[in-house]
Design a protein around this nucleic acid. Structure first.
Lengths: 241, 241
DNA sequence: CGCCCGTTTGAAATAATTCAACACCGGTGG
DNA sequence: CCACCGGTGTTGAATTATTTCAAACGGGCG
């Protein structure tokens, strides 16, 4: 049986919870289900009644623009709650879909709100999570707005490698479970250009590939190429007060 | 004498505070100062000891990339706190500067944290503010990643018009207090291209200008051109639970 | 085996940048 | 008072990055 421990692990990343908060999180009511790739988890415009947490697998959020284009605005790894905004906002401003086959838990939003009011450490962790999410979004704005395609791609690779390994999901060889079209939608590029950028990084020896299994022989060099600093991820516990 | 009422007004946008929270916010210790345009309010890498609130004037946050480019990641109007992330993160991941001459209040971060622990309505408003900020950032990612220059510019104009008029700062003729270079840095474009896009909007009759004073004769048309929906601003009190 | 989705590649078209020059305007100092 | 100055806005021409369109390829799966 699966439980909410991935969520707890994520929330405790910046500081361990006291016993009561720990138990309160693990004691939240929830149901789980297994979903196929591309299953919608949130739909823009709908009121969120439940909070969805990724227990395993990956997910992404996206928005659609007038000309039909799609922009992926965030990627999510196991342990992450993908709709904390539903806590106080009653209208979703974006969509979310599973990227891979995934196991998700759904928690009634009311239970989350109650915990927020009763358990200060939990409330703190949720706010902290939002602060970090905003920081990541600022970096995405910067990445898309001011870096060329190769740099953008290298940056995204570094971010993914860093986040997954911090959560113990993957090491320096990892699967980037996205099609090139999805990568393009995340970087504000077309899939064709993503393909050319990937091959450029490959030919420079910055990455090697075996279908979607990425290998980064020299992370330092890729970070250099991607203008990547992990400061914005605020993953270092020392960086939280 | 200026006080923190602009901050209170902003925090109360989604729901009035009870008397105690109200007084607690207005009773926060603070100092004010007048700053010139371009004055740095936050520097990347530095630990935030104080929380800076805009009482009047405008400000922006930005990040610098390896090739020297700058990306503006958010704009701020009176009443907004520009570094809530300092609440729990002890290292700034971006810079902030005044856009215009501005009056800013600085509040010791410790006082904010104390209030967060003691006044639930205040804590809720701060979390809500972060949720909305994240939503705006997602829209910026989308705007920069997937819309062409004219649409991007129209969108930014609509956002600015909507946000300022919601705070009672301006109406449908308003000053966009940015140079074309700054607009470019906000949209991921060059100043030259911003200029051409502005003139294109002008020639289509979507905006008229008198130096930096913008006039929008038909907001509905500009919204159409900018693929703008104000849903993501979550300004409607009904949208908050 | 054949089909479908995703990848790869080339060539042409387009959006945006770069570089350069000039106009404008408010402010400052002679 | 005028001349100059620096920052901003405007414009054109050349260049570059990225997109678009189209076609072929490959591999996994029914």
């Amino acid at each position: 049986m699966s439980d909410l421990s991935p969520l707890l692990r994520k929330l405790e990343a910046h500081g361990k919870f006291p016993k009561e908060d720990r138990e309160a999180v693990l004691g939240l009511p929830f149901t789980t289900r297994e979903v196929a790739p591309a299953t919608y988890l949130i739909r823009e415009g709908e009121p969120p009644r439940v909070c969805t947490v990724l227990l395993s697998g990956y997910a992404f959020r996206h928005k659609i623009v007038a000309n039909g284009g799609r922009q992926i605005v965030s990627l999510h790894i196991p342990g992450e709650a993908i709709d904390f905004e539903g806590i106080y906002l009653n209208c979703s401003d974006h969509n979310a879909q599973a990227l891979t086959r995934a196991e998700v838990a759904t928690i009634p939003m009311a239970a989350i709100r109650r915990l927020l009011a009763e358990r200060p450490t939990f409330a703190r962790a949720v706010l902290l999570d939002m602060l970090v999410e905003a920081s990541v979004l600022r970096e995405w704005v910067t990445n898309i707005g001011r870096r060329d395609s190769k740099t953008r791609l290298a940056h995204l690779s570094c971010e993914f490698a860093t986040r997954t390994s911090a959560q113990g999901v993957a090491g320096c060889t990892y699967e980037l479970p996205m099609t090139q079209e999805q990568i393009g939608d995340a970087l504000g590029l077309t899939s064709v250009h993503v393909n050319r950028s990937i091959r450029a990084l490959e030919s420079e020896g910055l990455i090697t590939r075996n279908k979607r299994l990425l290998n980064v022989p020299d992370l330092a060099r890729l970070r250099e190429a991607g203008d990547f600093s992990d400061l914005y991820l605020h993953a270092d516990p020392q960086h939280a007060v």
